[in-house]
Simulated assay, not measured.
Amino acid sequence: MNKAIDISVLDGVIKRTIETVETSKTQIFDIAENARQHGNSLKFELHELRQEISKVIQKVDALELAYRKSRNKLVLVSRNFHMYTEEDIRVAYEEASRIQVELSIYRERENNLKRRRNDLERQLRTLEETIVRAEKLVSQMGVVLGYLTGDLSKIGEALESAKQHQLMGLKVIQAQEEERKRVAREIHDGPAQSMANVVLRSEIVERMLKNERILEAQMELHELKEMVRLSLADVRRIIFDLRPMALDDLGLVPTLQKYIQTCEERIQSSIDLVVFGVEPPLRSSVKAAIFRLVQECLNNVEKHAGATTVQVKLEFVQDSLSLVVKDDGVGFDLEKRMANGNSFGLLGMRERVQLLEGSVELQSAPGEGTKVIFQIPIKL
């Protein structure tokens, strides 16, 4: 009876904690979003300000030149006063004074504009730091929230099995949050920034059209079209990384060929795909799992191996599938890596392969590259 009461109390504490974390996560996200919107406004203002500064600087240069000429003329008139009338001398003096006053005004305006520009740039840097900190906090909140709503929400079962699965569960959630953060960062740094730039430049085009600067507006629209095209390509690449639709449309082998071609361009390594046998009709989950295994291996090659050549061998044999990924990179001490607990990537692959009732073997040594061998049964 006491045990049930304790579990009930723990469940209540966890539920209240989850609600608090969810609220805090939303508030932090709102802070980041507001900072981002304010930053876009500041960028637009900064763009306009820089254009105005450029025009003022040109005006100051022109006035300085005009002032030097007027001073020279005044000196000439003063030295040769017998050749000029009093009216000529007065006009020369007034012209030099007028230009001097105008030059002083524009110099002061230039200094004020530059101070405003420097202030905007400082504000932008502060906002960007705020956004980075807020996104980091949101990610950390996501890890905590995922952990609380996962294993710990079933407190009765967690009390019996947490010792064995708690660490792995947390690492899986961390990996999910890292993936979400990676996707969010790609969207923020790619399409989101491009769209913000499109909004900014479309406002510039609108102003150009109002001022009948048609040719400049056409050039700006041409650049806008190219920017949107590149943003669309970024979105398609992100979607492909999340879930390649070609897996269901074309099959496993063509999708791997396309992905490997993209990897070659990105990591600048030679990657060969060798296929033996004919690809049988595979379940969607199996195709997705095999694709993710190849993706994880190539990600490890990109991040850690420093390899120049990689071979991906896929072999279909009756009711089984063999997948081998081999590189000529730096390799590592497998026993030391396992002892230090730095083998989460391998653990993740093993978990994925176990779901398919398969096996995985890793072979590596310092200076001798790495070889990963997967054996997966095929259930038609």
Rank of each mutant, 00 (worst) to 15 (best):
V360F: 00
R182E: 07
E186K: 06
A32L: 01
N80P: 09
S97H: 02
R107E: 14
N40Q: 12
E223T: 11
R115G: 09
Q218D: 08
A162M: 05
M141V: 02
L65T: 15
C263P: 01
E128R: 10
L200A: 13
L314Y: 00
D319L: 04
V132E: 08
L362F: 08
D272R: 14
T26W: 02
V312W: 00
V312F: 01
R201S: 06
V301K: 03
N72P: 04
I173T: 13
V172N: 06
E206A: 12
L347N: 10
M208A: 12
E264A: 02
L137Y: 00
L334E: 04
R125V: 14
L215E: 07
F29V: 03
K154L: 12
R16D: 08
R283I: 09
E129R: 14
A4C: 04
Y93H: 08
R122L: 15
I214A: 08
M208V: 10
I155T: 08
L323E: 00
A307I: 06
Q311I: 05
R117N: 11
D151W: 02
S270K: 06
S359L: 07
S153Y: 01
D6T: 04
E265Q: 09
L321V: 05
L282K: 02
L230T: 05
E357M: 13
G331S: 05
V199P: 03
Q257M: 06
E102C: 03
D319E: 06
R125D: 14
L63Y: 04
H38S: 13
F44P: 06
M168S: 11
Q268K: 12
T85G: 15
V353G: 06
Q176V: 13
N111G: 11
Y93T: 12
R201H: 06
A192E: 05
G190S: 04
A32T: 00
M227W: 01
S24T: 14
E110V: 12
N299W: 03
H38M: 13
Q257F: 00
R292K: 15
A246S: 14
D241I: 05
A217P: 08
R180N: 15
K136N: 04
N112G: 09
I376D: 04
L170T: 05
V312K: 01
L221E: 02
E226P: 08
V317D: 04
F44M: 11
R229P: 06
Q166L: 14
K15E: 15
D327V: 06
Y106N: 15
L63H: 07
E264N: 02
I105N: 06
Q311E: 07
S231I: 03
E351K: 11
A62R: 10
L42Q: 10
I271A: 02
E95G: 13
R68H: 15
L256W: 00
T130E: 11
K55A: 15
